[in-house]
Nucleic acid binder design. Structure first.
Length: 233
DNA sequence: CCAGACGTTGTT
DNA sequence: GTCTGG
DNA sequence: CCAGACGTTGTT
DNA sequence: GTCTGG
């Protein structure tokens, strides 16, 4: 799945990549957690526009917004049949901006080992997402999103069975344009190519969402740097 | 018809 | 809002 | 995802 | 154990 990620890339570079004239006002993040605002891209009037959305989708019909605290992921395989996601999949697709994400490798006993996955070239990742607008009892709109997950590729598999669906650069405008029907965009939710990402073991300090800094993804010292453990398959 | 649920992961 | 269950 | 809370009454 | 919060 995908329950924690990073976005350290300078907003200037992100804007250049998307052709936006203003610098995206981001600051480096090393531990983005559910319920926090995340940077996303969605189509408005036929153009890709940046927007901040709360991570954790609150369906429009929800009475208690706390339901969003656990709606942080949506399984690609069941999007079309789940009432909470079906309409958003057709009408409200977005891309969540990231440059890495964390997965925890469960161990038989003892603590879990977290790994950070990022592009070998350090580039931007765009997670397939859905967004929703919920109106609070006060009439205040709250815009939220969820990250779509898919089967793990070979790089992830030693660590975890699921991974975020990563939309390739060339597919980004097609995914975002909701005039494109579901059958056109569904194949984009396949696991990423095995050579896209590299795994880095990281400190358990990442476990706590209150820790956020460059130290989280520094290489562990060699004598305590585990590789993804194939014996746990 | 109305009432009630609507989600994911991982673990057992 | 929309679907499932009774 | 992990971390941390999880309850009431009454009194100050 | 289960739910809420970040």
């Amino acid at each position: 799945m995908c329950g924690r990620f990073t976005l350290r890339i300078d907003g200037e570079l992100i804007s250049i990549e998307w052709g936006w004239t203003k610098r995206l006002p981001t600051h480096p993040r090393f531990n983005i957690a559910p319920t926090q605002p995340v940077w996303a891209v969605r189509f408005e009037n036929g153009e890709a526009k940046p927007v901040e959305l709360r991570w954790g989708l609150i369906p429009s019909w929800a009475k208690d917004p706390a339901i969003g605290n656990r709606m942080i992921n949506a399984r690609a395989e069941t999007l079309v049949e789940k009432p909470a996601f079906r309409q958003a999949f057709v009408q409200r697709r977005c891309l969540v901006l990231a440059d890495g994400f964390y997965e925890w490798q469960g161990k038989g006993k003892g603590p879990k080992q977290p790994f950070w996955f990022s592009r070998a070239d350090g580039g931007l990742l765009t997670f397939a997402g859905l967004w929703e607008r919920w109106i609070s009892p006060d009439g205040e709109p709250v815009e939220t999103c969820t990250i779509i997950t898919t089967k793990a590729n070979e790089t992830l598999r030693p660590v975890h069975e699921r991974m975020p669906a990563i939309i390739a650069s060339a597919d980004r405008p097609v995914w975002l344009d909701c005039t494109n029907p579901v059958p056109v965009v569904t194949p984009m939710l396949a696991p990423a190519p095995d050579d896209l990402l590299v795994a880095t073991p990281v400190s358990a300090a990442v476990n706590s969402p209150s820790n956020d800094g460059p130290g989280l993804i520094e290489e562990a010292t060699p004598d305590e740097a585990p590789s993804p453990d194939l014996r746990l398959l």
